[in-house]
Amino acid sequence: MKLFSSDTIKNVYLVCVVIKDENGQDMPMDKILHDISNIERLSFIFPRLAHVTADTFTRLPYFPKLRKVTIGNIPEHIDESDVIAFEKKYPSASCYHTFRSNADYDRSSN
């Protein structure tokens, strides 16, 4: 995780990327993003076969400087309220998310 443990990283774009841990297991989103405290823009598009649960969003760290977040390809079994709860932590950020069913939600239009 040395790749992501820098205070200088401001933008993170992970599109259908799978990062393996030392045991060859897929790393969950919260562990990938754990040490990035100064992130301002985040785009995380889940790979088609990613293991995603509601906890994926509740375990994410808080990013005090986050201004834009896009989360895409969210599996349909995830309740949208879990994603929205994460987005509500960032009232001044532009937040967008899409599910695999291609239905999308744009908080800025509400």
Rank of each mutant, 00 (worst) to 15 (best):
I36H: 06
G72E: 06
Y62H: 04
I9T: 08
N23V: 01
L14C: 10
D30N: 12
F57H: 12
G24V: 13
I36S: 06
D55R: 06
R59E: 04
P47V: 10
L14I: 05
K31P: 08
L33Q: 08
P28W: 09
L66I: 15
P47N: 15
V52C: 00
F44H: 07
T58F: 10
I19A: 09
I36E: 03
V12H: 09
F46M: 01
K10H: 06
P47S: 15
T53S: 11
K10T: 03
K31Y: 15
F46K: 02
N23W: 12
L42I: 10
K10Q: 04
P47E: 15
F46H: 03
N11L: 11
I45D: 15
H51Q: 08
R59Q: 07
Y62P: 02
T56H: 05
A50Y: 00
L49P: 14
V69F: 12
N38P: 01
D35L: 00
K20Q: 11
N38H: 06
F44G: 05
E22M: 14
I9P: 01
T58I: 04
F57M: 02
K68E: 15
T70Q: 07
I45P: 08
V17F: 00
R59T: 12
T70M: 15
I45L: 11
M29N: 03
A50V: 04
T58G: 01
L66P: 05
I19G: 03
R67Y: 07
I39R: 02
Y62A: 04
Y13K: 08
M29Y: 09
S43V: 12
I32A: 11
I36A: 08
D55W: 06
I39S: 03
H34L: 08
R48V: 09
G24Q: 11
G24F: 03
D35Q: 07
K65Y: 02
H34C: 10
G72Y: 10
D30E: 10
T8I: 01
K68T: 13
E40Y: 06
A54H: 13
V18K: 06
